[in-house]
Nucleic acid binder design. Structure first.
Lengths: 345, 345
DNA sequence: GTCTTGACTGACAGCGCTGACATTCTGCCG
DNA sequence: CGGCAGAATGTCAGCGCTGTCAGTCAAGAC
């Protein structure tokens, strides 16, 4: 049982190490101008007393907050995983993560932002889509001079560092997978329009279809907004069509799950009569039967990098390096059993 | 476009309102001894300058942090919803929520706790199960004199306030629902042993079965640890048994989803050949077909109350009121189409 | 009128730390 | 061996706020 972390102050450490409190401060902040043996002595004292700097005092004196904000639209699977990746990275550097949900549609966003930015003096903010492209949020942050890292943004990529995967290529690969299985009539469910990935996934789909001379029936392209219930509606429309698709490419796993649910209501056997692909490899992908063929995003890794960007560069002081970093991480096609050859091929 | 929240200090407000900074401080902290018109004048100045107190300074001077910790084992659906409820309540009182994940199994829990408790001076911590009953976590918190609110704890209920639903009764109701449909052979999937709800749900099941003189076959009681993949194994064992159940009561929705997946592999039609119930009404409950009959917990409300307990009572100063609050919120039976009459009845 | 009381307000130190600057030390050159 | 640059360390004010305690003021008792 380790002792209770008591309120040891920097002065007590200084006394024990026989240096001034300023030197302890230097050691704590990894400043270079400390002789090696002095540093060692201080470190020993810190260890011995189990010293933990008082964040409030530190922040007050240096005008820092040690806080990184993670803003998202609404919590979900994606958030949980992202969050733990970011928290982990933050913890390594004595920083902390503050998750805040902003209601994008509501008119209160501006007020919420004011409160958040006024109260906390965030050292950086990570924006999850669709916030990554929300003009008003971006403006506020810019006006408050708070560095931003955008996840899967849609446009204006030089404004701030961004992190994402190559949605376009992933979508082409997934489409190719379906085409190679023998599908020709493939339905497509679009995600939310304000989401950066939505367009890329659609373009990848279209281009791959074209490359294989497969026709894209406009009646088989429906908008599901990444939502399960909307996906149900889309799927129903597609399946009711005179010439229903043999496969559906849903832009995320929730909608794919919806397609599968609807297929069951239509009494279709899967994947024989209908193949379905998702996107994201969310938990639901493996909680349904058949399990979803999908694309896995390295969400935790993206989170780590996002936090790291803010922690490493201290952009609040130095600004972002030029050119502004743009990370495109590798994705992975995960082929499970929601896709197969169309029956009769 | 609202102006950028600038760094207005308490002194500027004081000057404008023609009072001392201390009086502004009194107003900010809702202290009683301020004359009504003075208060109004100060409030006007605060409004006019868009003053936001500096949390670091406030915290340093008053030895507070304005931070509430939310500790959980691993992120998941439950967390997301809980988190937003808690954040909302915190925001109302200028408090903030810090989510931290602790790896319960790992040996690092103690070190993690030390770091967390030393760094932040949390004003309270909300513990999600199974952390609500983790001895070492509880000890550390107790030693550091940090007030705790436990969600769905298992034992030792007078130690700290707790919030939950009546898992026992809910389980009885769910069991009754199955029995009333005509099921007699019902399988049961247990959750994690360190989870408080696990035992209650099991007891509720058992007691209701007994009350109806329905036999409980020990081969049909399996431990799935609340995990989908374990649920798959449990379901398989049950379905392979010489006399398979006509219904399965899974202690959470993930395992219920697993039961349904496995039933599909066995080619069973649902709910005709197998009824399945879940628990929690997690997102997955309505993302599969058939949709799950389950029990809805008022997760967001629980979160609100938890945060409120800490914010209202400032237990760090005053301690908890006696007797220690114990909130049992109402649950709701949600009957969907994963349950039905057994075929042949 | 004066005195007392309690309601209200203000002065001021100091929370624990770091930034700016001052001072001391060290090694090395001439 | 003095002198000097630069490395290492120290001094001290002050970040913005609140706790403590002292002071002021109005109203009622005498």
């Amino acid at each position: 049982m380790t002792p209770i972390p008591a309120s040891v102050t920097i002065q007590e450490v200084a006394d024990l190490a026989q240096v001034s409190s300023k030197t302890v401060s230097r050691v704590m902040n990894n400043e270079p101008l400390v002789r090696a043996d002095t540093r060692k002595r201080v470190l020993a004292a810190i260890e011995q007393l189990n010293y933990r700097p008082n964040l409030n005092a530190r922040g007050l004196a240096s005008n820092r907050s040690f806080l990184i904000g993670l803003f998202c639209d609404r919590p979900g699977d994606y958030l949980s995983e992202f969050q733990s990746g970011a928290i982990e990275r933050c913890r390594e550097s004595y920083m902390h993560l503050m998750v805040e949900t902003l209601d994008v549609r509501g008119p209160k966003v501006d007020k919420q932002m004011d409160t958040l930015l006024g109260q906390l003096r965030l050292e950086g903010v990570i924006l999850l889509p669709p916030l990554s492209d929300h003009p008003s949020v971006l403006n506020k942050l810019h006006a408050a001079a708070i560095p931003v890292v955008r996840i899967a943004p849609k446009s204006n990529l030089s404004a701030a560092p961004s992190i994402g995967i190559d949605d376009y290529t992933a979508a082409r690969q997934l489409t190719a997978h379906l085409l190679n299985l023998g599908h020709r009539r493939i339905g497509f469910m679009l995600g939310r329009a304000d989401h950066g990935a939505t367009e890329q996934r659609y373009l990848g789909f279209i281009d791959e279809m074209r490359a294989h001379q497969a026709p894209v029936d406009s009646g088989l392209v429906q908008t599901g907004n990444f939502i399960f219930s909307d996906g149900l509606v889309c799927a129903e429309r597609m399946l009711r069509s005179a010439t229903p698709p043999t496969a559906i490419f849903a832009s995320n796993d929730d909608m794919a799950a919806a397609a599968i649910s609807m297929a069951r209501k239509f009494g279709l056997s899967l994947p024989g009569q209908l193949s379905v692909t998702g996107f994201d490899d969310a938990p639901v992908a493996t909680m349904i039967w058949p399990e979803l063929t999908t694309v896995r995003q390295p969400v935790a890794a993206m989170a780590r990098i996002a936090a790291d960007l803010i922690i490493q560069h201290e952009p609040r002081r130095h600004g972002w390096p030029e050119p502004v970093p743009r990370h495109l991480l590798g994705h992975e096609l995960v082929i499970r059993n929601s896709t197969g050859r169309p029956s009769g091929v």
